[in-house]
Simulated scan of single mutants.
Amino acid sequence: MTAFAAVNAVICGAICWRLLMFRRDGARHRPWACWLAYVLIVSSAWAGFEGVVGRAHVGPAGLVINLFLCVAVFRSRGNVCDVLRRPQPYR
């Protein structure tokens, strides 16, 4: 297992965990967001698992992309709609 694969496995595990721990707390239910979150959970868990067993070949670009996705998911507290929402301009 390379260092990139090990770090990527941890990042993908963090993405999966944070999306699984999302609580709506009164937010609207959007079916498309649920499906998108489901696909992200399964794909990040799969990528993390492949990193653990040594089948993943991750380069620096893939690692940076997953790191940015991880930061975006944690900043939005696991809300997929907030990750995709356009930022409001400052006034």
Results as ranks from 00 to 15, higher is better:
Ile41Leu: 04
Pro87Lys: 03
Ala14Trp: 02
Trp35Ile: 03
Leu36Thr: 03
Gly13Trp: 00
Tyr90Asn: 14
Leu67Asn: 06
Phe49Gln: 13
Val39Met: 12
Arg23Tyr: 06
Val80Glu: 15
Gly62Tyr: 04
Pro31Arg: 01
Gly78Thr: 06
Trp46His: 15
Leu63Ser: 07
Leu36Gly: 10
Gly26Asp: 03
Cys34Leu: 13
Ala33His: 09
Gln88Ser: 13
Gly59Trp: 07
Ala45Cys: 15
Ala45Ser: 14
Trp17Thr: 02
Ile65Ala: 09
Leu40Pro: 12
Phe68Leu: 14
Ala72Phe: 00
Gly51Ser: 05
Arg18Ile: 01
Gly48Glu: 12
Leu19Cys: 00
Val42Pro: 01
Arg91Cys: 14
Trp32Asp: 12
Val73Gln: 02
Ala61Leu: 14
Phe68Ile: 10
Trp17Glu: 05
Val52Met: 11
Ala37Val: 09
Leu84Gly: 10
Tyr90Thr: 15
Leu36Asp: 05
Gly13Ala: 02
Gly26Cys: 04
Gln88Asp: 08
Trp35Lys: 02
Leu67Cys: 10
Ala47Phe: 08
Leu20Cys: 05
Phe68Gly: 07
Phe74Met: 03
Val71Lys: 05
Ala72Glu: 00
Ala33Cys: 11
Pro89Arg: 08
Gly54Arg: 05
Phe22Asp: 01
Gly59Cys: 06
Trp46Cys: 15
Gly59Met: 07
Asn66Gly: 12
Val73Pro: 02
Tyr38Trp: 14
Val53His: 04
Arg77Ile: 10
Phe49His: 10
Leu36Gln: 10
Leu84Phe: 08
Val42Cys: 05
Ala14His: 00
Arg55His: 11
Gly78Ala: 02
Phe74Trp: 07
Glu50Met: 11
Cys70Glu: 04
Val71Leu: 04
Glu50His: 11
Val39Pro: 08
Gly78Tyr: 06
Trp17Asn: 03
Arg28His: 00
Pro60Thr: 03
Ser43Leu: 13
Leu63Ile: 08
Leu63Met: 08
Arg86Met: 04
His57Ser: 15
Gly26Phe: 01
Val71Cys: 07
Asp25His: 07
Cys34Gln: 03
Ser44Val: 09
Gln88Val: 11
His57Ile: 10
Leu40Glu: 02
Tyr90Val: 15
Phe49Arg: 13
Ala61Lys: 11
Phe49Glu: 13
Pro87Glu: 01
Phe22Thr: 02
Cys16Met: 03
Tyr90Met: 15
Arg18Glu: 01
Pro60Cys: 11
Ala33Lys: 12
Ala72Cys: 03
Asn66Gln: 07
Glu50Cys: 11
Val73Leu: 08
Gly13Glu: 00
Trp35Ser: 01
Ala33Met: 14
Gly78Lys: 08
Tyr38Lys: 08
Phe68Arg: 12
Asp82Arg: 07
Arg86Asp: 05
Ala61Asp: 12
Tyr38Gly: 12
Ala33Glu: 14
Ala37Leu: 09
His57Cys: 11
